[in-house]
């Protein structure tokens, strides 16, 4: 079976660079089409840089969430966690006078702690991760509300170093590198793939499955913290939400992860995640310059994700899909 998939032809031509070629090709094609349609208002160099900066927030969340997704689990609390972390960071910087150090460290710790709670709850309660994290997201949302005191958390102009280049690029690049390192150069990455591939066999091989599951939740939480820093810095403010409204922040990172999964066969999951998020921003901004309302972003994200997943997965006959 293996390599005899639909991309066999491309594989022959480009060899090990097939994945990279497809990724760059996707960006060039979508950029090209939109540039032809709107040569003046779309895709000036500084605009493209802007699109890229917009995609960093979700990308950072996605490279963390990827470990969970690879294991076959889900985390529905990343949106709530991200908001909570952003608020905690702001409070530490402004109300507790801890400066940028607090603004950086507090969200990361908060995110990792939330991840730890997720992981422990999932293991101890023995219920699907999707359900546990949904329930916990309810709690994180309301905790966020209390931490913020029910008012909007905002940053002044001189406090949003991480909202624009180079601040956001530094954090994002650090995050990407870290994620890549964990995935390729530590046992965690290997074991996450092993658990995702066949949990029973992995357990048999002596892998402490529960320990690594919890650890992975912590890693995801850690990246949510970074995502929170970028999110509040980019928009300069963050409102705590209730009623599961934080869910909407889950989708773009989740989508990026599926993009990453699709390109795993080429050995490029992390770049694919970033490119996937970037692609969405290009298409979205392109539509906006074409005169579409901002609501189009959701439609674009939804359709893109559906098509990517449906086209990259080859249905196996008789396979049971739930």
């Amino acid at each position: 079976m293996g390599s005899s998939n639909s991309k066999g032809g491309l594989n022959k031509i480009f060899g090990r660079y097939t994945g990279a070629v497809i990724l760059v090709g996707l960006i060039l094609v979508s950029y090209g089409i939109l540039k032809i349609l709107r040569p003046d208002t779309f895709g000036q160099p500084n605009q493209v840089l802007g699109y890229f900066q917009q995609c960093l927030i979700d990308s950072v969340g996605a490279v963390g969430l990827y470990f969970i997704i690879v294991m076959g689990l889900f985390d529905f609390s990343i949106g709530a966690n991200c908001i909570l972390c952003a608020i905690v960071g702001t409070v530490c910087m402004k109300n507790l006078g801890m400066g940028y150090a607090g603004f950086l460290i507090a969200p990361i710790l908060c995110g990792a702690l939330v991840g730890l709670i997720n992981g422990i709850a999932y293991i101890k309660l023995h219920i699907p991760s999707m359900i546990v994290t949904t329930g916990l997201a309810l709690i994180y949302e309301s905790v966020g509300y209390y931490v913020s005191g029910g008012v909007q958390a905002f940053l002044t102009k001189d406090q949003n170093f991480f909202g624009h280049a180079p601040g956001n690029l530094i954090i994002a690049c650090a995050a990407f590198l870290l994620s890549y390192t964990i995935l390729v150069y530590t046992k965690v990455g290997t074991y996450a793939y092993a658990i995702g591939s066949n949990e029973a066999v992995a357990k048999n091989m002596g892998i402490n499955v529960n320990k690594y599951k919890v650890l992975t939740f912590v890693i995801t939480g850690f990246f949510d913290g970074l995502m929170g820093i970028l999110a509040i810095s980019y928009g300069s403010s963050m409102v705590s939400v209730t009623g599961m409204a934080s869910m909407s922040r889950n989708f773009a990172p989740t989508m990026g992860c599926f993009f990453g999964l699709a390109f795993r066969q080429f050995g490029l999951p992390i770049p694919a995640i970033i490119v996937g998020e970037f692609l969405i921003q290009i298409i979205y901004n392109g539509f906006v310059t074409l005169g579409a309302p901002t609501a189009i972003q959701n439609v674009v994200t939804g359709v893109a994700l559906l098509l990517v997943v449906a086209l990259t997965m080859k249905p196996v006959k008789g396979e049971i899909v739930k």
Partner: peptide, 17 residues
Amino acid sequence: KVKSFVVTICTMFLFRG
């Protein structure tokens, strides 16, 4: 054969738009 969870999250997002 896309997971139901993935499909419906996509359509949820799409139709919300």
